[in-house]
Amino acid sequence: MIKGLLKKDLYNLASYKTSLIIVVLFCGIAIIGTDAIYWGSIIIGMIVGMISLSTFSYDDMAKSNRYILTLPVTRKEIVLEKYILAIGATILGSLLGFILTLLIGNIMNYVRPDNVIDINIDTLLATTVGGFFGVSFIQAIQIPSIFKWGAEKGRIQMFIVLLFLVLIGTGVGFLIRESGFTIDIAKLESVLKNFGLAFLIILSLIMYFISYKVSYKIYKNKEE
């Protein structure tokens, strides 16, 4: 059943595959050819990852959620499918960002031998995983918002939720500083260097899991 839902969403997304390819290539060439090369993987990862959420708009347009609830599929499967799609697209986007940055960067270096940009694989990997975490964070907030308020309203509500989180984060940071709590920066840096990427990936998966639980709770009793 999830396979059917995935197919439906992928066919929907296929309707703007040409625009997507153009945007990704344009971003690739525009950013990767400059000193801001590492942004390439983040931007491409973000475009491909976030595009998966536009399937919610297609669903809204055809009011397809109502119809889908008449098919032999559970509400849990409907929610799960959206997360499989979002996580899949984010992983694909990050991989694509990583590969394209490396590829286009090297092509540019070959084309412009007088202006060679040094591409450090470790830094590229770190920025790609950082981008993956960023997209996961936005999706983990946005998907429940869309399930609650719909594709259009959900976007606005998502920004409000995001603003709240930033304010809370800033507040907590302020309180930590004010309370005189000291952080061993050197120790933290060493931990991040050794386990940072794995930590970010695990944190992303935890965020997705919590987000899925929240979305299911919202959608379980939602009336279409």
Binding site: M1, K8, Y58, S64
Partner: peptide, 29 residues
């Protein structure tokens, strides 16, 4: 719902699919 066929006035699978796509999707349901 496996033995149910439903037509809703204002709602369908998607408007951005072709009948050919719908066949491939429905096979999985």
């Amino acid at each position: 719902k496996k033995d149910l066929g439903v037509v809703l006035d204002d709602s369908f699978l998607s408007t951005y699919l072709t009948p050919k796509h719908i066949n491939l999707v429905m096979k999985d349901f």
